[in-house]
């Protein structure tokens, strides 16, 4: 246990925070959520993290001794299984993000240029899937992609193939499922950012001699970069840390990072391993998010100094 001590005499930030809390300068309404966050997220996370750096002894279900150790981390980092698994997860998440962008952008663009009904239909089609759980949507893919599923029976009936294709329980099934399930998360921020801009900008570009394609390239696309950044960050995080879709569509021999954490915690009950894996998962995820943020920032320098 660490004791937090406030520097004597001077008003340290800790003291000022306590002061601010007690005087209630607008912080009070946020206190319940801060408490919930601390209890539900920060403290458990700290505990989990501590497990990754210690050897544990349990008795009657409780941890009785915890000694500092780096072995779990070094073992994981030198284990090729971890490298392969995290590479696969990263690869899957990045491809999912890429395809979500490729499929989502035209939809968002259609929303921008479409009429009232186009907009409504796009919104309904985008939001409706979010109202059902991801598990249900994943099961739908089981039905579609399975050996007797819609895809295979159609291909068989038109004699394109004579044996059902094995799509289920492959990397492709996981990718297809992930892209479909995370597509709305890409489309919504794109729509939000793209429709925030004045339609006159497009007219101005056309008036200045830009073709539709040039307008898309020089005006609509650069202005939608913040949306792309947000969407990509969301889709990446969700795909990188998902374990429902890979479990259901990837089959029993498809392993991604989140599934690995789940199994280490629940089945192997090896929490030090689970903790280290989730730490690696989180750190790598943060690294990618920082990269996405840096790229986005670089492409949106114009948003800075907006209030200047």
């Amino acid at each position: 246990m660490a004791n937090v001590s406030v520097p004597a005499g001077g008003a340290g930030w800790g003291e000022r925070l306590v002061d601010a809390l007690l005087s209630g300068r607008g912080v009070w309404p946020a206190v319940p959520s801060i408490v919930v966050l601390m209890v539900m997220a920060v403290i458990p996370f700290a505990i989990l993290l501590s497990l990754g750096f210690s050897d544990i002894e349990v008795a009657r279900g409780a941890i009785i001794s915890q000694t500092f150790s780096l072995t779990h981390l070094t073992t994981a980092l030198t284990d090729p299984l971890y490298w392969i698994t995290f590479q696969r997860s990263l690869n899957l998440a990045l491809t999912t993000t890429f395809f979500c962008l490729v499929f989502g952008y035209p939809v968002a663009y259609l929303f921008l240029v479409g009429g009232r009904w186009t907009k409504r239909i796009i919104l309904i089609l985008t939001i409706a899937p979010l109202l059902t759980s991801g598990i249900v949507r994943t099961y739908a893919w089981l039905v579609i992609l399975g050996g007797r599923g819609v895809v295979n029976s159609t291909l068989l009936s038109i004699d394109l193939i004579d044996q059902p294709l094995r799509i289920m329980n492959t990397h492709w099934a996981v990718l297809i499922g992930m892209v479909q399930i995370h597509l709305p998360v890409m489309i919504l921020p794109l729509i939000a950012v793209m429709s925030r801009h004045d339609t006159r900008l497009v007219e101005a570009a056309e008036n200045l001699g830009a073709s539709q394609l040039a307008t898309l390239r020089t005006i609509i696309f650069p202005l939608s970069v913040p949306g792309i950044g947000t969407g990509a960050a969301l889709v990446f995080t969700l795909s990188y840390t998902t374990f429902v879709v890979p479990q259901l569509l990837g089959g029993g021999n498809y392993l991604n990072a989140a599934t690995m954490v789940y199994e280490q915690v629940v089945f192997s009950l090896d929490w030090s391993k689970g903790s280290v894996s989730s730490l690696i998962l989180m750190v790598t995820c943060l690294i990618v998010l920082v990269i996405i943020a840096l790229i986005t920032n670089r492409l949106t320098r114009w948003t800075r100094g907006r209030d200047a």
Binding site: L201, N207, L223, T300, W302
Partner: peptide, 20 residues
């Protein structure tokens, strides 16, 4: 078409491209 007309428009709120 719009982009071929020898016409220049100054818009009400100027419609300057914010990213340029």
């Amino acid at each position: 078409p719009v982009n071929r007309r020898p016409v220049g428009v100054v818009f009400q709120s100027y419609a300057l491209f914010p990213h340029m």
